[in-house]
Amino acid sequence: MSVELTSDCSVIDRELDSRFDQHGSELSERARQHLQECQRCKKLYEWITQESPPGEASPELSGRIQGMLQSSLKPVSPRPSTRVLAVRFLSVFLLFAAPAIGMMGVAGLHQMGLPQMIGITVVLALGVALLSMSLSWQMTPGSLQRIPPKTAAPILTAGFLIGIAVLFPWRAPEAFLTTGWPCLKAGLMMALPAAVLFWLLVRRGVALNIGALGATLGAIAGLLSATVLQFTCSLQEAGHLLVWHGGVLVASTVLGVAIARLVNRLSREPA
């Protein structure tokens, strides 16, 4: 019998995939043939499909756990679906952003052309939808996360920065620092209460990956600030938008990760 790895070995990998997808699906003829010929695959297939030894929880241990759980057993209401949760995040976003834009004026809106307005609105809307879904997935253990939590914030940031770079004109900066700093400051000051509001919603669920949650919370709060700034700031120039408005998004995301890790570390420190 051959023990060399052949290109047909990948057939067994695929068979195992379908076995774990369909639970006990029949082997194809090609796979049967390959198992007869390839010793490596035969051993692997045998090992994977043979019954595995389960752990043995002693009756005392099980009894202790049962007693512990039953002593604090109270009815609980299942939390809403991820879509409902996502709509809640979207609502908080709109309820925070709309009054802020109303108070600060819509100077930015008047500076934008129609393609810019449509383009940036689409980017911002997709961003907030993505982050709202990501937060609702992260609140619920075992959710199928179509976009992994670690990639949601980078995708949003990249999309926002590319959108700005493509949609808005590049001009020589005038008083770049003095005009930009107030935007960054105002953006970060808005992001802080926004992040607290989103966190109040998130804490109703159970977030397992604290770092990713911090990044997503920071990103959605930063996006909210960037949205408000986008419609209220009269400097609609790519350099200003990228550095000072995009900076709010990036800084807020980084701060979100840092704060989440710090809180996580402090909560784990033994007394």
Binding site: M68, T140, G142
Partner: peptide, 16 residues
């Protein structure tokens, strides 16, 4: 295992 069951217990409302 005990800690895990405590966490499961506290998170049981998140099961749909």
């Amino acid at each position: 295992l005990q800690e895990c069951w405590i966490r499961i217990h506290r998170s049981r409302h998140t099961y749909r």
